[in-house]
């Protein structure tokens, strides 16, 4: 009984750390983006202010029950993804609830929030929301194929679907990291990662001027605040997932922050360098080069 409560406490701690880290990451990355554009950029603590501001809004409206609870779905999706994953390798407590399911749970649970959010956005009745969701889902199908191929290649390599074991197998130096030992799978996953993070060139889902930020068009005030919390946690959780799969995981928070930051930089750099794809372009792109790499990764593992 005690362990459950301790586990819950540690879970809350994990959420807290990752939330703040996620917000920091947002701020820092935007700062970097600005500096690349020769701007001074936002203050690194701007994301916190924005959240406070949104929670401090005095009025709010709702379009219906799904709209109202969609942020709950969304945040549950983010937190769940985080908690079903061993965040810090080697510590029982920061592995949270990863004993309840393996890699596949994460792979499919990430859609929990997506679906809930999509439903909420759709109930808002705004055509742009539905348009954004339809683009988002279409893009998901494309990169998910590459992602799956990469994950299969890794699972074959380590003969397990347990993330803890996958991380365990990568311990003992950079040479053991999957990105080194299984570069094809690594490349496939890192290409899928680009769209998974939803940054440019794959950010047509929330294209701000075209379909005013897509699904969250109607969200505001406190509801938007919840979404912002998720926007901090969810990408961070994904980063941790990719770190665990490809870059040897982390045995302490310091390593985690450094590694995930560097991984994030990959999508940031690509995003800064490339303009936005149209959704059909991004689908076709994913169904070509990354798919081939993914197939090669799997074939390489098989033979």
């Amino acid at each position: 009984m005690d362990t459950i409560w301790i586990k819950l406490l540690f879970s809350l701690l994990t959420i807290f750390i990752v939330l703040n880290y996620g917000l920091l990451l947002q701020g820092v990355v935007r700062k970097i983006g600005a500096r690349v554009g020769r701007r001074y950029g936002i203050r690194w603590y701007q994301p916190w202010i924005d959240i406070i501001k949104n929670y401090a809004k005095r009025t709010k409206i709702t379009h219906g029950i799904m709209y109202y609870i969609a942020p709950a779905f969304r945040l549950t999706g983010g937190i769940g993804l985080l908690l079903f994953m061993p965040v810090i390798y080697g510590t029982d407590m920061f592995s949270n609830f990863s004993f309840t399911g393996d890699l596949l749970l994460l792979l499919y649970f990430q859609f929990f929030g997506v679906l809930g959010m999509a439903l909420g956005a759709a109930e808002g009745g705004h055509p742009y929301s539905a348009m954004g969701v339809s683009r988002g889902l279409a893009q998901v199908t494309a990169y998910e194929l590459t992602l799956t191929l990469g994950i299969i290649a890794i699972a074959v390599q380590y003969q397990t679907l347990s993330i803890t074991e996958i991380v365990a197998a990568q311990q003992g130096g950079i040479a053991n990291w999957t990105i080194i030992t299984n570069p094809l799978a690594g490349i496939a996953l890192m290409l899928a990662f680009l769209a998974a993070m939803g940054r440019s060139p794959f950010d047509v889902v929330i294209a701000p001027q075209e379909i005013p930020i897509g699904p969250p068009t109607e969200f505001h005030s406190g509801l938007l605040g919840v979404l912002q919390l998720n926007r901090a946690i969810f990408p961070a959780a994904k980063l941790i997932l990719f770190m665990n799969l490809l870059f040897g995981g982390a045995t302490d928070w310091g390593t985690l922050i450094i590694k995930t930051f560097l991984i994030y930089m990959w999508s940031v750099f690509v995003g800064v360098a490339f303009p936005r794809f149209r959704v059909d372009q991004s689908i076709r792109w994913y169904l070509f080069i990354p798919l081939i790499i993914g197939v090669l990764a799997v074939l390489f593992m098989k033979f």
Partner: peptide, 27 residues
């Protein structure tokens, strides 16, 4: 290769969801 516990996942997801929902309702 892997493992999976439907019952605990159900509890965890429902738990998180209810907590977040209560927070939203409160705010």
């Amino acid at each position: 290769y892997g493992y999976w516990n439907g019952e605990l996942i159900m509890y965890a997801v429902v738990g998180i969801f209810v907590a977040v929902l209560l927070w939203i309702i409160f705010w």
